[in-house]
């Protein structure tokens, strides 16, 4: 059982980090970023190229993933989403744009990095073995980094000036604008931050799960699942959603294994019941 809990906690930390960027962008701009998984993939491939191919230190590769995706996110916001939001009042316009971006990134990544699964050397070798728990050291390290990053992100959002401005924007865009918050600037910073988070997680996890050009879509779906559980646009909700999903997967795959692959069937059934009772998720507000 201890092994199952350890697996669940590790998965949860990883999932929570994936969901953070998605929920941030949704909170700030009311945009469902379908390209979130593709941004994760791009971040993974940047780390693969720099750490795996050029043999530069992993930290450098991770930084490059973050910076590349932050720039990419900022450009996307400035030239695509901002324009569409300005010209169209219909919410589905941004959704269509996000979906198109996802397909575009899929194609670009496939062209640039090929169709194969890619992996990099382990960042730390060895396995922690006790009587009840077996965990490779690299997973422990990645889990700890994920938790530290979540904590740093929350502190940034709570205490820094941009963090406060973005929270204000998320709560009430018009009121924030009237109070002197530069909406365009902080929307761009928020989008860049969300994209950067996706890129850094992709880079971090490439050392454990590798990356391939086709996993963007499934990653996005899983991230949406976590955000729905926790409540769309709520940072704490995304974290809770990540840990809940991680734990449900870990427990389900052990307890229900005798019955075939029904773990996700059960998870989806529970999610449907849960959403029918609480459509705004655990921490979301009914009014948005």
């Amino acid at each position: 059982m201890e092994q199952v809990i350890a697996n669940g906690l590790y998965l949860g930390a990883q999932y929570a980090l994936i969901a953070l960027g998605l929920t941030l962008i949704f909170a700030l701009m009311n945009v469902l970023n379908f390209a979130h998984g593709q941004m994760y993939v791009l971040g993974g491939f940047v780390t693969y190229a720099i750490y795996g191919q050029l043999k530069l230190p992993f930290v450098v590769a991770l930084l490059c993933s973050g910076v590349t995706l932050a720039i990419f996110g900022a450009l996307m916001e400035k030239f695509l989403f901002r324009t569409v939001i300005r010209r169209s009042k219909r919410e589905e316009s941004t959704m269509l744009l996000a979906a198109a971006t996802a397909f575009f990134l899929d194609a670009v990544v496939l062209l640039l990095f090929g169709e194969k699964q890619r992996g990099v050397p382990k960042i730390i070798s060895g396995v922690f073995v006790s009587e009840r728990v077996i965990l490779p050291y690299d997973r422990i390290l990645v889990g700890v980094i994920a938790i530290l990053m979540i904590a740093a992100f929350m502190l940034f959002m709570q205490y820094s000036k941009p963090g406060r401005a973005m929270r204000a924007l998320a709560q009430d865009r018009v009121a924030a604008q009237l109070m002197g918050v530069k909406v365009e600037r902080y929307s761009m910073i928020g989008f860049a931050l969300g994209a950067m988070l996706a890129g850094v997680v992709g880079g971090l996890l490439v050392s454990i799960t590798g990356v391939n050009s086709g996993i963007g879509g499934p990653i996005s779906i899983k991230a949406f699942l976590m955000v729905m559980i926790g409540g769309a646009g709520v940072v704490g909700g995304a974290i809770a959603g990540g840990f809940i999903l991680g734990m449900m997967e870990s427990v389900g795959l052990t307890v229900l294994r005798e019955y075939g692959d029904i773990t996700y069937l059960v998870i989806f059934a529970l999610l449907m019941i849960f959403l029918s009772i609480r459509p705004h998720g655990l921490m979301g507000k009914p009014w948005g």
Binding site: Q14, I208, I215, E249, S250, L253, D261
Partner: peptide, 17 residues
């Protein structure tokens, strides 16, 4: 009877039992 979703990225929980 053990199966996994094709988009699984971390197989530790699946393989543990």
């Amino acid at each position: 009877k053990d199966t996994y979703q094709n988009d699984t990225r971390d197989f530790t929980p699946v393989l543990t039992p």
